[in-house]
Design a protein around this nucleic acid. Structure first.
Lengths: 360, 360
DNA sequence: TTGTATGCGTTATCAA
DNA sequence: TTGATAACGCATACAA
């Protein structure tokens, strides 16, 4: 990093005690505690005490030290602090896709518990990419954060258990083995609810839209869908799977196109999308091409993000308790870091179907 | 929503050399480099070299050290590393509202440049709250991050300039004084475009919806709106301002309700919302109450988030180059940290109106 | 090529 | 109450 105190283009004012204005010192480097001590005319230890145990210092010295800190623009060095203290008060949440409102709602939930425990939360976006997930997790570990929350691509991946062995870790949004804490929603049940709903409405040809199929969420939702379809006594061949490369709006539109390409008599009359973004894309394509929803095509989404009900045709969706998922994960993390001999939990919430105009 | 939860106790395995399984050491603390050195039968310096300049170490020793690291589950201590090195390779983006897709799109842009420069990016959400913004900024400073990006509540707030004096900082989404780098979009022009569009369509009673009014974005968009309204020769009294407490969907719905409460002959025939979330809320209220859009009420939003065009009635919006805003901010940050004698830039993009069904 | 010693900025112990 | 000093874990110059 450049040495900004000597090279900035904006001229730095000389020392002046204008209130509220930080005075740039002539140090040529970031001021340290001993600089503060010197300026305040006290020892290093006193400065430290002012910072960490102010009650042990006379009021006069507190004031002197604080003045000096303000004058120098002193900022504590977190690395040194942390190296010495050995503990941190930040936690990280590695999210699968920061542009998916589902995950930002989850992270709001996490934030509320983090704030209550006065922990800072850093968000890391892995953008659906395994190598980024690994990099972020590794980085958080190296930072010796107090805890890690993560929505992983693959909850059974070995690196998670390995990390969980050395730092409190909670998986959010997918069920894990008992080696790891997790908070999730029963996706198999969610898949059942979605298909059951379509079956109840009389559909006999349907498609599941989503992918990649190695994503647990996708796998489980398909499984639930198949179970419900079978239990309804319908022909398995009439529940087709339309794979996608991702779970965003664009992929949904593309899937809509592929669907429209099928001959009318084989075309599904209903689709169950692995998430709401796909459903919204599907809906956009339908509207753009004059396909009637739900008349020609019924659409069910998943997650029940706010935009689902705000859509062109409000989208029926399988609702997950998004914020509560985050809060529960946060609580579990706190518990895990406070309790010695912690017993891992796998907390599972139940989803609910919210029927709207896209199927009714 | 009920939930069941299962529990399991995981016994820590004793040392065992099963490949791929991390062996728990008997150290009772996190393994350090000297533990690795001892186990590998080399010196501390060699371990360090394996980590940082592997070419200087014999292949045999590299292997030995890596084995030892794997066996112990060694993880570098970033604090110590950073304290010693004095520089960091993480940057932070303090965003105004992580649940607003506009900002997540901006952050995607930032991510792309960060990744290209192999910097890790931490996202911090200030949730529209000043004290959280300050806390996050302070935390990032204490961490001595390589740079900070921020979309602040108030871009002219003193603390920003103060921070910018000690660490590369770029403000995203609002224009600042020349003491600080910024990347923004001309919101006054955006406001003009929106109102001009409505005027062109023949509207003579309109409302601006948004708030709080001390937000720069809101202020500027109102100003642009007023200018365009005046220039069209229309009566200023017929461009009312409907203040809101925030910029989310709920506030939009609430504003819709207030609007509907006005006597028909005084009620605006068009609204310009300070962002798309408000516009979507407004639209939801309109649809729910049978108000025709755009027949009874034309709606213009701002930001052109993906959900605007996916809405019940695709929403006309003022488009900002969201990802490009982030990329440009990232580039500016890199430049600021690499260049000595850096000259601060205030880069301003131009918005564009995207007309859709909600006004046409 | 490998090993040793020093210091990064802070906190906490302990003596004054 | 205050002040001197020893870690914290790692990276690097320098010695071997």
């Amino acid at each position: 990093m450049t040495n900004r105190s000597t090279q900035g283009r904006v001229p730095r004012p000389a020392k002046q005690l204008v209130p509220g204005v930080v005075v740039q010192s002539a140090l040529g480097r970031a001021p340290r505690m001993d600089d503060v001590a010197t300026l305040a005319g006290v020892s290093l230890g006193t400065v430290s005490n002012v910072l960490n145990r102010p009650h042990r210092v006379t009021a006069a010295n507190v004031a002197r030290v604080q003045d000096a800190m303000a004058q120098l623009g002193f900022v504590r060095n977190e690395s040194a602090r942390h190296l010495r203290a050995g503990r941190s008060s930040t936690v990280g949440y590695v999210m699968l896709d920061a542009t998916n409102p589902f995950f930002t709602d989850v992270s709001s939930g996490i934030e509320s518990t983090a704030e209550a425990e006065s922990l800072s939360l850093f968000l890391c976006n892995s953008s659906n990419r395994a190598e980024r997930e690994v990099a972020h997790l590794e980085r958080l570990r190296e930072m010796r954060v107090a805890g890690i929350l993560v929505t992983p691509l693959d909850p059974s991946a070995g690196h998670l258990a390995e990390i969980a062995a050395s730092v409190p870790l909670v998986v959010v949004g997918a069920r894990t083995s008992h080696e790891i804490c997790s908070v999730s929603v029963d996706d198999v049940l969610g898949g059942q609810l979605a298909i059951q709903h379509l079956v109840d409405l009389g559909h006999e040809r349907a498609a599941f839209v989503g992918g990649p199929s190695d994503l647990t969420q996708v796998k489980d939702r398909i499984e639930g869908a198949r179970q419900a379809w079978r239990e309804a006594g319908l022909d398995g061949a009439n529940l087709t799977v339309l794979g996608t490369e991702g779970l965003d709006v664009d992929q949904g539109r593309a899937a809509g196109e592929r669907l429209a390409g099928l001959p009318k008599r084989r075309r599904p009359t209903a689709v169950f999308c692995a998430n709401d973004l796909l459903a919204l894309g599907m809906l956009q394509h339908a509207i753009a091409t004059g396909c009637q929803v739900p008349g020609d095509l019924a659409i069910v989404g998943y997650d029940d993000i706010d935009f689902a009900r705000a859509a062109a045709i409000p989208v029926t969706s399988v609702s997950q308790p998004r914020a509560e998922l985050g809060r529960a994960a946060g609580r579990l993390l706190i518990e895990e870091s406070n309790t010695s001999g912690h017993v891992h939990h796998n907390q599972v919430f139940k989803p609910e179907l919210v029927a709207r105009q896209s199927t009714l």
